[in-house]
Design a binder for these strands. Structure first.
Length: 290
DNA sequence: ATGCCATACGTTGTATGA
């Protein structure tokens, strides 16, 4: 079984690219973030043509999460099971993330899939940063309440946290910014410590592997990036994890790419014949980056 | 080489991203 996550940076703008990638990677389940669509505008038909059911949770202009599955979608829950409500006040920003479409869960062939798009945080110690940490508290509580360590569960998406220094291009340059602060890293580890494994890191100990690169200044081709998108697998799935990769090809070329690349894991068996090609391409990139 | 920002909303600019 192949599960992938991808911050698509607008599913409307990226639809052709996403369709291309579904054919390329053939994931059984794809978690998407930043669809930037209202539910009424979700491209259900395009996914159906490609053989996928689509569950979408969005507000419109910002955020938005979705799960596409070609092996069924049941038990869909959005926004931690609460109604999506607008914030009472946007003065502080503190309560904004609770009103934003950042969480969607569904059952796909016996695996609980949780798709998340964590708040950005903007600047350390800003109200948005505090709100980001509160959002992680909410996620941790929800995970604790709704799953046990023995369930088959994958929590994936854009966490907007680089868990360790090896997950950023330059820890010194990043120091003091969001995504790398101690409190954000503790929030990430708290989720993991419930009984999950960072699937990519479990397969790849090496530094220099990222899922996001700024559009500006040629950062992608200089490999100036961060590993902030993750797939966390529950303990019962850990030993069934056979392969994981970040598909840099999807960050290139035309039509215009997202600033994030898809992250892929295979459970039980490797997915597709061209996996060997991915592996060799990644080896060349890693060699050049060091 | 994969190349110097892109998205939505809206209108000649603003908010957001990480």
């Amino acid at each position: 079984m192949r599960i992938a996550t991808w911050n698509v940076n607008s599913l409307k703008a990226r639809l052709d690219k996403v369709m291309w990638w579904l054919d390329r990677a053939k994931p059984d389940v794809l978690l998407m973030q930043e669809t930037k669509l209202a539910d009424a505008d979700a491209p259900v038909e395009a996914f159906s043509q490609a053989g996928y059911e689509l569950a979408h949770h969005g507000e419109g202009r910002w955020n938005g999460v979705a799960i596409a599955s070609r092996c069924g979608i049941r038990g869909v829950i959005s926004n931690f099971g609460e109604p999506l409500r607008r914030a009472q006040s946007s003065e502080s920003g503190d309560d904004e993330p609770q009103a934003e479409a950042r969480m969607l869960a569904a059952d796909c062939v016996g695996i609980r899939i949780v798709c998340i798009y964590a708040p950005n945080g903007r600047a350390v110690n800003s109200p948005y940063y505090e709100a980001k940490l509160l959002w992680f508290d909410k996620l941790a509580r929800w995970i604790n309440q709704t799953s046990s360590p023995q369930t088959f569960c994958v929590i994936g998406g854009d966490f907007n946290v680089a868990p360790q220094d090896i997950d950023v291009w330059d820890p010194v340059a990043c120091h003091g910014g969001t995504h790398v602060s101690d409190r954000e890293r503790r929030a990430f580890e708290r989720i993991v410590s419930v009984g999950f494994v960072d699937a990519y890191r479990a397969q790849h100990p090496e530094p220099g592997r990222y899922t996001w690169w700024d559009y500006r200044a040629g950062n992608f081709h200089k490999n100036i990036g961060m590993r902030i998108d993750h797939l966390l697998v529950s303990t019962p799935l850990r030993d069934r994890l056979v392969w994981s990769e970040i598909d840099r090809e999807a960050r290139k070329g035309k039509p215009l790419p997202s600033d994030h690349a898809p992250l892929v894991i295979d459970i039980d068996s490797p997915g597709h014949p061209f996996d060997a090609g991915w592996a060799s391409a990644e080896s060349r990139i890693a060699a050049r980056g060091r």
